[in-house]
Design a protein around this nucleic acid. Structure first.
Lengths: 207, 207
DNA sequence: TCTTTTTTAGCACAGATGTTTCACAAATAC
DNA sequence: GTATTTGTGAAACATCTGTGCTAAAAAAGA
């Protein structure tokens, strides 16, 4: 009967336009009109797939959050599946590889991190995004927590760690690095941030 | 001749209104009208003291940034003036006292931190705020850097530290903690964040 | 009291935004 | 082919925004 257009694919296309607008001009500029133009659609088309602006924004937020965490989870599950490296260096390399998916180390991840920051900050005052923000907190908490557990399970970890405390500190390091790298890329280059993360992980397992 | 009104005082009053609006409803709601209403002034009055919205925002940003850093600098200079504590615990206590001024540990500091975050993130895409953001980066870099130097000067510091690297990591911890405490106060209580900061400082000077 | 200067208040305009509504185009099923 | 369902596009509306402009009010000097 109808014209066939994959609705889910269309929604993701619009979400991608949201990401581009936010990355380039900030969340305040992510109006329906700007998003529609960036997506190459008419305003009415966008509104055909999203009843509300609120619905669009929550959808985009969740896509962004899931994209980031799925990337990290893939690497994490690979890490958990195989044997833990016997070398300190290799262990840190594996773990930092997982967590690096949360950092803006290249252009796509940078865009993701920017969008993520803007949404999280907006969720503070925008109650329509608070549920998605809660889910995001849980997701990163799970990823980081599981990485810390991997570190502790290794016989290389000579230090006795309090997993919850160290996970919290590690989350702070990640958030802080991400923020700096996003806002001040001139001073916080990708290799620089990654090196700081690696040093922190080394500190965790060497007394 | 004229009605006498202290212009500088008036500008600070308006800036305070900006802070309240941002803390309660976010930067996007900090319109001239909302700010004027919060300040108990007419729109025309606000515009009498600030030609532009841009001028108001940069002024508010700088007041916020200076307020935060001046608080920390006061404590820092007190720390640098007196003898370094001989007890490890006392040293960490002093240093964390300085850096705690950068964290949202009580309501006024929480409001400052929220406003600070919103401005910093906005400065990414708002070129009119980028100069103020640069000055802010330098200011926190100076404060944190001097604290790290204090830690290294103490004979209690058994570890040999790379000051620049550790300052960068410490800044990340502070930014990350601040972000978490601002966005997720339910999970990141003030005492909790302060404890994490203290643990990090202890880790810095104990091998 | 009158004058002068600052402060305050308000109106009006152009632009942008979310939303509603409606008409049209397109593609499939009969 | 025709009908029906879905997708697309545009116009219109109310609201909010920054800004320009004008006029009243207030306070200090003459």
């Amino acid at each position: 009967m109808p014209k066939i257009v994959d609705a889910d694919q269309r929604r993701e296309l619009v979400a991608d336009a949201v990401f581009h607008v936010i990355a380039e001009r900030g969340l305040t500029q992510a109006s329906l009109r700007n998003v529609a133009q960036r997506a190459g659609l008419a305003l009415g088309s966008v509104r055909h797939y999203f009843d509300d602006q609120a619905e669009l924004m929550e959808f985009a937020f969740r896509v962004n959050s899931e994209r980031i965490h799925l990337r990290a989870l893939e690497k994490l599950e690979a890490l958990e599946a195989e044997e833990l490296p016997a070398e300190r260096e290799a262990l840190v390399e594996k773990c930092s590889g997982v967590l690096a998916e949360l950092l803006p180390l290249d252009e796509p991840r940078r865009a993701d991190a920017v969008v993520h920051m803007e949404f999280m900050l907006d969720a503070r005052t925008n109650t329509l995004l608070s549920d998605a923000a809660q889910d995001d907190y849980r997701a990163t908490g799970a990823v980081v927590g599981r990485v810390v557990l991997q570190l502790m399970e290794s016989p290389l970890a000579t230090k006795v760690l309090a997993p919850v405390d160290e996970a919290e500190r590690l989350i702070a390091v990640l958030d802080g690095l991400s923020l700096r790298m996003v806002l001040q890329p001139a001073w916080s280059a990708p290799e620089h941030g990654l090196a700081t993360l690696r040093r922190h992980l080394v500190d965790l397992i060497t007394p």
